[in-house]
Each structure stands twice: as structure tokens, then as C-alpha cells.
Design a protein around this nucleic acid. Structure first.
Length: 636
RNA sequence: GGCGGUGUAGCUCAGUUGGUUAGAGCAGCGGAAUCAUAAUCCGCGUGUCCGGGGUUCAAGUCCCUGCACCGCUACCA
């Protein structure tokens, strides 16, 4: 008997609607769990939402509702999206659920009482020092500051200390490192595992376990003036969602006795691969078995961004391709785990070649011929068909091949293996040409060809069902089967279909799509939102300037410090062009600068203005006046 | 600059612990067939496996080095 299988996605922060990134991870998890289910394994799939924190509280206030009510609304978008994408989770944990809160409080209590092997408390009190904006009532990172002031309130933050509890991560580092090295905590892909091990070399410090100033959160059981730190709270969802502190039997089953897998994108590597196992060790709980971190994708070679207008909305894809093909297309763009590029132009081509031409057409030609030549009844198998033994062998071997890939998270390889059988079946159909056999008076032989193809289709539909759950059922329906047929065991055995069973097909399973480009609509929308008033544009005072001298800024490889002449005066600016221009090259050039920009300090160097340059990918060019104009000439 | 990654056919990528003539899909060209969603099937690729060293009987596959690119990170007003 196999161990039960437990898989999670991260919980998603509800300050955002679900986007393609969320969808990608969640579809992958759903697909992996469905494959496990095919083998007959008991499975549990947990996803959910992260709903605490200052940002949420603020967003709720803006919307004029209580935080909880605000979250309730956003959560519906997530649930709806997952439903639309055929994601079938077993648990949906919200960090505002009472059972989550209870669970976190239990964990915190245990951690607070626990001691390290050398007898030190795991949780200790310390001070956190940071930049605090009194108007926001929150700590800001240096990165968030604009010109050294709070971007919202334009006031400088004060350096403030607050009491925090800390988690003694340092006590677990050696042990944890060994667990990772020995794969007892299996981190995949390998490059991510190396990255984690690299973090140990770079030094890891204890982290905050609580915050004092945050209000929307879970108060510590032992100090109600503090709230559990976001990562402590969020990571706990993986156990609160399966009964920790609530239903011990369930927790035993899914955490202590199951194979536990966390799936996520690589950005949250440190928290999951280091903090989370350390917390569990401190609490005396088992660590997860596997952590898989998939990569990031770009769209048409560029990072997704609103200004580029190259985002992919899962809902748009569903509208164009349907939920099954959307899942298929997203998972076949590049290998799972690696970084990759999604090219929208490939969607239609891939859909047509794989799904319409190969799979859909196979189903169609086989079913229609059975209907036309065999009265819609599945004919009997026949002997000695050209390539018959080979296709049967390939089909019977396929379940093992597919699962071997899936168990290594090689989703693309698994899918391609299934598609291989589709191609074999089309080839088999062609070489035996049953339509000729019918005409030549060998209907039995023709029937045998069709029987083998029908069986291949059944096995294909079963093995692709985790990727395309509803389309697979539609295909099985053509063969007169339902979801009871969906199991790996059934896929392993040929001659499952009874000769004589009714075969019927209505339309096309995957109708061919026209390859046309009609995305102008969305592009226009984005431009409209960005329209400027003439007066707004005029606020930027641009002038021609001459570079008098230039030098590199020490310790920064992108920065040049420029002394420039703007006619009325000489001033200094800092520009991020060092990778494209040497100081010598840029000296003497006439450039365009915005002169009425707030002064700023960059890398400790004062900058009074910004120069104009055009950049695309790896190329950057200064914007220069086409003719000869003196410094100070205004640009309108 | 630090850490990590990548570099194989026009494009997207496979190439397992080093071992025979380096593969697949897509696109392209030519042909066959007409059951089927103008879908399918067959044939066609001498690719400096980024460059340079090295280890080895043997390297796309290991080691060193250089270059290019990507991600995170610091700095990009």
C-alpha cells in the first residue's frame, strides 16, 4: 500500500486578484495530485489564501469594509478561478479561519516553551530596528523609500526600535543542512537545492517571529501586544489546513504518515527550505519530504508587466481555448521547473498541432469510421496487423513511463510521452488504411485496426486526464465510458473495451482554431489608462545638456556620475548607463535631461536630474538632439 | 560586485551514471493518401553540441578558463 500523498501550493496574498502565476502553480499541483489519484493513492491537495497584514487592513479601509469582509470578497475570485480551471483542491485554508488561528496559537505556544538541545529558549525577545513611517504606522524598507521619504506621505521615516520575539534559527542550521545534503529534505530541481545550500555558506540569521506594530494578525498567545510574524503564520497553513491543533487523526494521516510535497515558485525558497523546516524541527514535528520550486516565465521574451501590456489573463485563455487546453498549453510551453518563455503566438499553433490535428482528429477519424462502417459498434480485435504488436506494447508501457516522469516532476515529458502514443496511433491507422480494407472486402481486419485505435484512445485519454480532466471524459464518453474507467490499472491493460459496445461522436473534441491576431482591444485599453494631459507632460522641463566630465561611481556597476552644463548652470547627475557608455565615450556628448527633478542621493552621490535614454532588451541609447543646439535649449 | 543558472538543428527543447553514424516536436521543401477537424502518413538536416585548454582508450556529458545571456541581489531619479 502506498503512503498517502499530500501536496500544497503557497497560500496566495489577497491584495491581488488571481493571475497567471498563481494559476500556473495551482494547475501544476492539481495535475500532479490527479496523477497520484490515478494510481489509486489517497491524496490531499491544499491551497488557500493569506489574509493578514497591514496591506490588507489598509486596502479594506480604503474600500470601507472590515478586513475580514474584504477578504471574503477577494477569496471568491480565487475560488472562482480555480473552479474555472478545473482545479479540484481538497482543502482551502484561509489564514483568517478560526482553525488556522487556533493552530498557529498552538504552534507558537509549543515553540515558546521549547528549548534547543543546549537548553536555550527557541523564542527569545529582542529588538527590531527599522525605518518607521508614523503616518503609515508601519515599517518601510529602504527600497520602498522615495528620495528618502515615505512615498505616500512624503515625510522622512524615523529610525524606530520595537520589541520583537525572534526565532533561534542558528540552533538548527547544522542539522538542517545535513538533512538537505542527504535528501531527507528533498529540494528540487537540483539547481535550487544548490542555491539553498549556498545560503548556508552566506550566513543565515535568526528571524523575527512577531511584530508589535502590525494590528491585523494573530496575537501571540503569550504576549497579546504582539502579532505573529507573517512568515511564521503563513507557513503554518500547511499544517493548519490538515488538522494540526484541531483534528489529530487527520494531521497524523496527512502530515506524519503521508508523502508531503510543497510546490511553489522559486522566489520563496528561503522561507520554505530553511525557515519552515527549522520551525517544524523546533516544534518536534516531521519536516516535509519534498519541496519543488518551479521557475519564472517571461512572455514573448519580456517580463510580464502592465505597461508592456503583455500580461496573460487566465480568463482570456479559458475563453479562447477552454479550461482543458489552457491547462495543457500552459504546461507544455517549457519544461516544468526551469525558467521559460511563453510565446502567445505559439498557443494557437500548439493547440492546432497537438490537440486538434493529432489527438482530436484521431478520435474523430476512428469514431466516425466505426459509426459509418460498423454501425456504431466497436468491432472485434483481429490478428496480424501491421505494427499491431508494437502499438500495443507502447500503450501498455506508457503508464509506467508517464508516472516515472511525474514522480520526478517532469510534467512536460509525461505529456509528450502520451502524445507519442497519439502519433503512433495515427501512423498505425494510416499504414493499415482500414478504409481500403473495408472496400477490399477485409472488414474484419479493418475492424481490428479500429479496435486497437479505440483502445489506444482510451489509454491516451486516461493518461492525459490529469492535464485535461473534462476533455478526457468527453473522449472516454465517445467510447461509452465514464470516469469509473479512469485508473492507471485500466490504462495498463489492453483489451479492456468490449467489442460491440456503442461508439458515438457528436462534434469535434478539439475544434481547429483560426490563427489570427486580434489583441488590439486590450492594447488600446491600456493606453487609455495612461493618457496624460498636456499640462502634465509640460511639467517635465527638458533641456539640452552637455556632458563636461564623467566618472564611474565606486561600488556600483551601472552608475556614472556626470558633470553637465545645462546652459544656465552646471550640475551633477547620476545615470545608470555605465554598462553601455564609458566615461570617455559620454564626455562631450549633447544629451537631454529633465532638470526639474527632485534631487536624490544614489549610492551616496547627489543627483540633480535625469537623462533620457531609450532601452530595449540589452540595448540602450542616449537621446540626443539631432542638430547642434547649445546647452540649455528647451525641449517641447 | 555577490549568489545561482543557461548556452545542442531556423524555433522550443531531449540527451540518463562519459562509450557505436547527436535526437524529438514545430516551421520549411518534396511526395502519398483521401477514413478524418484541408486533419493524416512518408522522405529530406555534414548542426564548429558557445570559444580555448585539460583529464581519459573514449567528452555534448567530468575539470580549468574565457565569452555571451538570464534570474535574484546591491546600485540603476
Amino acid at each position: 500500500m502506498q503512503r498517502p500523498f499530500y501536496i500544497t501550493t503557497p497560500i496566495y496574498y489577497v491584495n491581488d486578484r488571481p493571475h497567471i502565476g498563481h494559476a500556473y502553480t495551482t494547475i501544476a499541483a492539481d495535475l500532479l495530485v490527479r496523477y497520484q489519484k490515478l494510481t489509486g493513492r489517497e491524496t490531499f491537495f491544499l491551497t488557500g489564501t493569506d489574509e493578514h497584514g497591514t496591506k490588507i487592513a489598509e486596502a479594506a479601509e480604503k474600500a470601507g469594509v472590515e478586513p475580514k469582509a474584504f477578504c471574503d470578497q477577494v477569496v471568491q475570485h480565487f475560488k472562482k478561478s480555480w473552479q474555472n480551471l478545473l482545479v479540484s483542491y481538497d482543502g482551502f485554508i484561509r489564514t483568517t479561519d478560526q482553525k488556522h488561528i487556533n493552530s498557529v496559537r498552538k504552534l507558537l505556544t509549543i515553540l515558546n516553551d521549547a528549548r534547543t538541545e543546549s537548553g536555550e529558549p527557541i523564542i527569545y525577545s529582542g529588538t527590531y530596528e527599522g525605518l518607521y513611517c508614523t503616518a503609515c504606522e508601519k515599517f518601510l524598507t529602504e527600497r520602498e523609500l522615495v528620495d528618502g521619504v515615505c512615498p505616500d506621505h512624503k515625510i522622512p521615516p524615523t529610525v524606530l526600535k520595537e520589541k520583537n520575539y525572534f526565532f533561534r534559527l542558528s540552533a538548527y542550521l547544522d542539522k538542517l543542512k545535513k538533512l538537505i545534503e542527504t535528501d531527507q529534505l528533498m529540494i528540487r530541481p537540483q539547481e535550487r537545492r544548490r542555491e539553498v545550500l549556498g545560503l548556508f555558506e552566506q550566513g543565515l540569521t535568526d528571524f523575527s517571529a512577531s511584530r508589535e506594530k502590525v494590528k491585523w494578525g494573530i496575537p501571540l498567545p503569550y504576549d497579546s501586544s504582539q502579532v505573529a510574524y507573517v512568515w511564521i503564520e503563513a507557513l503554518s497553513n500547511y499544517i493548519s489546513g490538515i488538522g494540526y491543533g484541531d483534528d489529530e487523526d487527520q494531521f497524523d494521516k496527512w502530515w506524519r504518515n503521508a508523502e508531503t510535497v510543497h510546490l511553489m515558485a522559486k522566489d520563496i525558497l528561503k522561507f520554505h527550505c530553511i525557515w519552515w523546516p527549522a520551525m517544524l524541527m523546533a516544534a518536534g514535528l516531521p519536516i516535509p519530504d519534498k519541496i519543488f520550486l518551479h521557475g519564472y516565465f517571461t512572455v514573448d521574451g519580456e517580463k510580464m508587466s502592465k505597461t508592456l501590456g503583455n500580461q496573460i489573463d487566465p480568463n482570456d485563455m479559458i475563453e479562447q481555448f477552454g479550461p482543458d487546453a489552457t491547462r495543457y498549453l500552459l504546461q507544455t510551453q517549457y519544461p516544468f521547473g526551469a525558467d521559460g518563455d511563453i510565446q502567445k503566438s505559439r498557443f494557437v499553433a500548439k493547440y492546432n498541432s497537438d490537440l486538434a490535428n493529432d489527438l482530436g482528429n484521431l478520435v474523430s477519424r476512428v469514431a466516425k469510421m466505426i459509426m459509418a462502417s460498423f454501425d456504431g459498434k466497436l468491432p472485434k480485435p483481429a490478428e496480424s496487423l501491421d505494427g499491431g504488436d508494437e502499438i500495443i506494447a507502447e500503450a501498455e508501457k506508457l503508464p509506467e513511463t508517464v508516472m516515472a516522469h511525474i514522480n520526478k516532476f517532469k510534467i512536460l515529458a509525461a505529456i509528450e510521452a502520451v502524445l507519442g502514443l497519439v502519433r503512433t496511433a495515427n501512423r498505425f491507422f494510416d499504414t493499415n488504411a482500414p478504409w481500403k480494407l473495408v472496400k477490399n472486402g477485409s472488414p474484419d481486419k479493418a475492424g481490428g485496426v479500429l479496435y486497437i485505435c479505440a483502445e489506444a484512445i482510451r489509454i491516451i485519454a486516461t493518461l492525459i486526464s490529469p492535464v485535461m480532466p473534462s476533455k478526457s471524459l468527453e473522449i472516454l464518453g465517445v467510447l461509452g465510458l465514464g470516469d469509473e474507467a479512469l485508473s492507471l490499472d485500466n490504462a495498463r491493460t489492453f483489451y479492456y473495451l468490449e467489442p460491440g459496445c456503442k461508439i458515438k461522436i457528436k462534434g469535434s473534441v478539439f475544434p481547429r482554431l483560426k490563427d489570427e491576431k486580434k489583441k488590439d482591444k486590450t492594447e488600446k485599453k491600456i493606453i487609455d489608462n495612461n493618457l496624460l494631459d498636456t499640462s502634465e507632460f509640460a511639467r517635465a522641463e527638458m533641456v539640452v545638456a552637455e556632458v563636461i566630465s564623467a566618472e564611474r561611481v565606486e561600488g556600483a556597476d551601472r552608475l556614472l556620475k556626470l558633470q553637465i552644463d545645462i546652459g544656465s548652470e552646471k550640475r551633477q547627475i547620476v545615470a545608470g548607463v555605465a554598462q553601455f557608455y564609458t566615461p570617455e565615450e559620454i564626455t562631450g556628448k549633447k544629451i537631454v535631461v529633465v532638470k526639474n527633478l527632485k534631487p536624490a542621493k544614489i549610492r551616496g552621490v547627489e543627483s540633480n536630474g535625469i537623462l533620457l535614454a531609450a532601452k530595449k532588451g540589452k540595448k540602450l541609447c542616449l537621446v540626443v538632439p539631432e542638430g547642434d543646439l547649445p546647452p540649455g535649449a528647451a525641449i517641447n
